[in-house]
């Protein structure tokens, strides 16, 4: 599909730009109105980030006493210093990175291998198994929450790193499906030629399929990473020790213990939010496209 950033003009905007050259009265006014609306939209989406950024660098007194729209007059790292030293946000950040990276690498690699098997290999029971994957795609997360917890409890895995990432690391049907649909479009002849040349299947996957499927793999990687980073309910229930907290759980705890210390809880929130903003800034085109891809494929 076409990328969203290059949008074909609709009839409406076409006629608008045509009439612009013949300077119809009122066009300037309409355009001003349009940009006013755009400005409001940008304010609505940016303000929560911007104001919490300002607040995180202010002492509590300034947060309470000043307009949130005012940048900090003398920016201070004190809030961050406090949550990193008196609370354990350095640890939470490291934990989050660790489990998210493991989850992402595992999920993408294993889903990719499964997707390749479904798309390009023949084996007995393939269609039945694929239907099973499709069926599990419909299972809402909330349904598996309690039984998964019971399973992890009985396996003695509660309060371990394993518990946090394992359910999402061996491959998930969403990612398998996403990549399988993409691999299906690779002509069969490519694989057959490689097989005739004596390529093993794993060599075909890593040397041929992966390089030509880079966009979809980046897509799956981004989706897995964002999921892992933002995940809250599952880490909340399978861990209850401070040393295993991820950022989302640590932030929620801090918020319920120090609800009125806006300087601290907002600084903590930013530790989780800012990396996602940076990720978005770097991969913005991929993310926009990947969202559209997941929509088309489902």
């Amino acid at each position: 599909m076409a990328s969203v950033t290059t949008v074909a003009p609709t009839a409406a905007t076409k006629s608008a730009s045509k009439s612009g050259k013949t300077s119809v009265p009122g066009r300037g006014l309409r355009l001003t109105g349009y940009y006013l609306i755009l400005l409001i939209i940008v304010i609505v989406f940016i303000t929560p980030y911007l104001f919490s950024l300002f607040a995180a660098f202010k002492p509590l007194g300034d947060i309470l006493g000043q307009s949130p729209a005012r940048p900090p007059t003398s920016p201070t790292w004190a809030n961050f210093r406090q949550i990193f030293t008196q609370d354990d946000f350095g640890r939470y950040l490291a934990n989050t990175l660790l489990v998210t990276v493991i989850l992402t690498i595992g999920q993408v690699t294993f889903s990719m291998m499964g997707a390749y098997a479904f798309a390009k290999m023949e084996f007995p029971g393939r269609d039945a198994l694929f239907w099973m994957y499709l069926a599990t795609l419909m299972v809402p997360n909330v349904v598996t929450l309690v039984p998964l917890y019971v399973m992890f409890a009985k396996a003695g895995l509660l309060n371990t790193y394993w518990a946090i990432f394992l359910p999402y690391t061996l491959g998930v049907p969403q990612a398998v499906f996403l990549m399988r649909q993409n691999f299906m479009t690779i002509p069969k002849e490519v694989m057959e030629a490689a097989r005739l040349d004596g390529c093993s299947e794993s060599r075909i996957l890593w040397r041929i399929v992966v390089p030509i499927s880079k966009p979809i793999i980046i897509t799956a990687t981004l989706l897995a990473f964002v999921f892992g980073w933002n995940n809250f309910l599952w880490p909340l229930i399978v861990t209850n020790s401070n040393s295993l907290n991820v950022l989302s759980v640590g932030t929620a705890n801090l918020n319920s213990n120090f609800a009125d210390q806006w300087n601290l809880v907002l600084a903590a929130s930013l530790v989780a939010l800012i990396p996602m903003v940076i990720l978005f800034a770097i991969f913005q085109k991929y993310i926009v496209r990947s969202i559209s891809l997941t929509g088309i494929n489902r």
Partner: peptide, 24 residues
């Protein structure tokens, strides 16, 4: 080979989705 490729995600799907749905 095909089943070796499929194994990790199959274990994941069965262990963390199919069994929990039955178990719940």
């Amino acid at each position: 080979t095909a089943f070796a490729f499929l194994a990790p995600s199959l274990v994941g799907v069965v262990l963390f989705l199919v069994i929990p749905v039955i178990l719940v």
